[in-house]
Nucleic acid binder design. Structure first.
Lengths: 341, 341
DNA sequence: TAGTTTGTTGAAAACGTTTTCGAATTCATT
DNA sequence: AATGAATTCGAAAACGTTTTCAACAAACTA
C-alpha cells in the first residue's frame, strides 16, 4: 500500500526527516513556524505515523492484552467493555483474546501477546491455574490476574477480584434474614478458587446459625445454563424440604429457572432463588433474579489503574491483592418465609 | 525488559544473526544441523521473536481489526467470537474495538487500526454511515462491512450480511401460515439499511396477501430492551386487535415480553411473538422465542474468507456483496390462530 | 569586535527483524 | 589435481521511526 512515511513529508516540506519527527511528537527544539507548516502538510497528505516503527524504538506499544474465557459470557463481555473503555481514556488499547478456558490455547495467546510486545497482560479467569504457569506469565511482563489465585501464588502475582468470601457471606445472611433455614448451594465448582471462597463465606454464616447447606456440585469446567439445568432436574424430580437456593452464578441460576419451569416449581413461591454475578441475564423480563453484584466497573477500573502503576514502576517486586466488595441487588426471585413454615 | 534478540542467540550459537533468522523462519539455505542447534538454543533461552520488527519489514502484521458497536450485545459478542476463532485458525489475530455506535469514536478507531498497520478491517454495524466515511475507509485498506450499506456505496465497498429482505419475507410468511392477519411490526429503525430491507421483505409478503402491518417505529439509535418495552407499553395499555407481533431484534422482543408481563398479556396465548437474531437471549428458559436466525457462523466464515481473498489480491477493484440466507428457528412464542378468529 | 549563549536544524545511529548479494566452503566431476 | 556447481554462511541494506550529537546561525554580552 502506498503508505506515506516521514521521509515523504520531509521531502515536500524541504526539511530533514528528523525535523518532521519533532513536529509530530511535539518535542521541543523546533520553531513553531516550521511545526505548523509540517503539521499542515501531514494533514493534507493524510499521513499516519507507523505505530510499529514507533513502538520498536520506544519499546512501548500502548497496547494491553486482555484474556477472557469467552466474550459470549455476559460477565466477561461486560467486564471487557468496561476495561476497554477505561483503558482507552488513558491512552491504551486492548487486544482481546478468548482462551475458551483451554490451557494450551491460553499459552499460545500469552506467547502471541508477548511477541507483540504488549505493555501488560490482564488475565480474567475463574479457573485454577498451576503455580508454574502463573509464575511464568507473571515473571516476564506486568501481569494481573482478575480473579483469585491459589494461595501459593500470592507472593508472585498481582490479583484483583471481588471479595468472594464476603459475597458468600452476603448471600447467606440475606437468605437467613428472610427466614430460610434449609438451603441448597447449587453449582459449586471445585476447580475455581473464587468458588471455594464463596462457599467458605457462605458456610461461615450458616455455621454460625448452626446450619448447613446442601451442596450440589458442578463437576464440569465452566458455569453454563445447561449444567445448572442438569443439577436442578435431579433434585426437582423428587420432593425436597429446602425453601431457598443459592446459585453460584447467573448462568447456573438460569438453568435452575428452566428446570423449575419444567417441574412446575414456582419461584419464589415454592423456592427462593438467589444468584451471583448480576449480568444482564438477571435483569431480563420474566427472570428478574435477586443477585450478588460483582461490581464489574469497579473491578475494571481497579485493574487498569493497577496496570498503569505496574507499567510505570516496572521494578517493583511488591505484589498486591485487591478485593472489591460485592453488593446485593434485590429483584423478585426471593421471598420472606412466613413464620408457619 | 530483558527481551532476547536474534543477536543474543547468534552470539551464543557462534553464528551470524542472519543465520538465526533463517533457522527461525524455516527459510532454505541453511543446513539442518545448524538449524536444529539454533532452534534448541532459542527454546532453552526462551527467545520470542519481536513481531513489531518482523511486521515492519514484512509489511504484514497478521492482525485484523474488528469494529463492533458493543461486545455486550449478544449478537456481536457471538459474531466476534466466531470471527476470532476462525481467523486464528487461519493464522490471523483480531484487534477488537467497540465503536459504541459513535461516528467520532469509529473514526478514531479506524485511524488507530491503520496506524497499527492491520492487514484489514472488518466493520460490523447496522448503522447507516455516510458514503464519504465508508469510501474513506474502504480506499485505504482491505475493508469489509458486515451489514448493509446504502445503495450508492455498492460500487466502492465489500459487504456481507444476512439477506434481510429474505429474512423479512420468512418472518411474514410464517406468521401468515399460522393464520395471523393483523400484525404488529415492532422496532423498525429508519436509520438502519438492514432494518429497511427487513421491513421491505416483510411488506412484500403482506401486500401479496392484501395486508398491511402496523408499524411501531423505534426512533432511537440502537435496539435495546428498554426501547422495546417503551414501544409495547404504549400499545398494550389500550385494547388492540392484532394477534401477532414481529420484533425487529431479540432485544426488542425481550422488551415486548417485559411489557406483556406487566399488562398480563399472555404470549403466545393472546399475542404471538416472532423475533429476529437468534441470540442466546431467545433460547433462555421462560423466554423461548421463535426467531429468525442470522447464521452468525456462516456470516463470520464468509467475512474472514473474503478478507483472506482481499489480502491476497490487493489490486482487485471488484466489490462483492454476499448475502447469507437466514433460517427460521421455532420455539414457543407463536401459536396457530384457531379458525374461529 | 570577539566571544558566548541560545535556538533551530541535519546527519547518523539505533530499535529487531528479513533478505539480497557475494564469499567461502564442500563435493562431485573430469 | 583442477574445475565447476552446490551448499552454507556472513555483511550490509532495508523497514519507519526516535533521539543524540554536532553544526550552524542569530542574538546577546562584554
Amino acid at each position: 500500500m502506498g503508505n506515506l512515511t516521514i521521509k515523504d513529508i520531509a521531502k515536500v516540506a524541504g526539511v530533514s526527516y528528523s525535523t518532521v519527527s519533532r513536529a509530530l511528537s511535539g518535542a521541543p527544539g523546533i520553531s513553531s513556524a516550521t511545526r505548523e507548516r509540517i503539521l499542515k502538510i501531514c494533514d493534507e497528505k493524510g499521513y499516519r505515523a507507523n505505530a510499529l516503527a514507533r513502538s520498536l524504538i520506544n519499546k512501548k506499544t500502548n497496547v494491553l492484552g486482555l484474556i477472557v474465557p469467552e466474550v459470549t459470557n455476559p460477565f466477561y463481555s461486560e467486564l471487557s467493555l468496561e476495561i476497554e473503555t477505561y483503558a482507552r481514556e488513558l491512552g491504551y488499547n486492548i487486544m482481546l483474546c478468548n482462551s475458551l478456558n483451554d490451557h494450551e490455547r491460553t499459552d499460545e495467546l500469552f506467547n502471541f501477546l508477548l511477541s507483540h510486545r504488549v505493555d501488560g497482560i490482564l488475565h480474567a479467569s475463574s479457573r485454577i491455574y498451576s503455580a508454574d504457569m502463573l509464575k511464568n506469565y507473571s515473571s516476564s511482563i506486568p501481569f494481573i490476574l482478575i480473579g483469585t489465585a491459589p494461595a501459593e501464588c500470592n507472593s508472585i502475582l498481582n490479583t484483583i477480584s471481588t471479595d468472594n468470601y464476603e459475597g458468600g457471606r452476603i448471600a447467606a445472611k440475606y437468605l437467613l434474614s428472610l427466614g430460610h433455614r434449609d438451603i441448597f448451594y447449587m453449582g459449586y465448582r471445585k476447580g475455581s478458587t473464587s468458588h471455594q471462597l464463596r462457599l467458605l463465606g457462605f458456610n461461615s454464616v450458616m455455621e454460625n446459625a448452626g446450619l448447613k447447606p446442601v451442596i450440589l456440585e458442578n463437576p464440569s469446567n465452566g458455569s453454563s445454563i445447561s449444567r445448572g439445568y442438569d443439577l436442578c432436574r435431579k433434585i426437582f424430580s423428587k420432593p425436597f424440604r429446602q425453601t431457598a437456593m443459592f446459585a453460584a452464578t447467573d448462568s447456573m441460576a438460569l438453568g435452575a429457572l428452566q428446570a423449575a419451569e419444567e417441574y412446575h416449581i414456582s419461584i419464589p413461591g415454592d423456592l427462593s432463588l438467589l444468584s451471583y454475578d448480576n449480568t444482564i441475564f438477571s435483569s431480563l423480563p420474566g427472570i428478574s433474579l435477586s443477585t450478588v453484584d460483582q461490581r464489574k466497573q469497579a473491578l475494571a477500573h481497579a485493574a487498569v489503574d493497577l496496570m498503569m502503576h505496574l507499567i510505570e514502576h516496572p521494578y517493583n517486586d511488591q505484589h498486591t491483592h485487591q478485593l472489591i466488595s460485592p453488593s446485593l441487588v434485590l429483584r423478585n426471585s426471593c421471598r420472606e418465609l412466613t413464620s408457619g413454615t
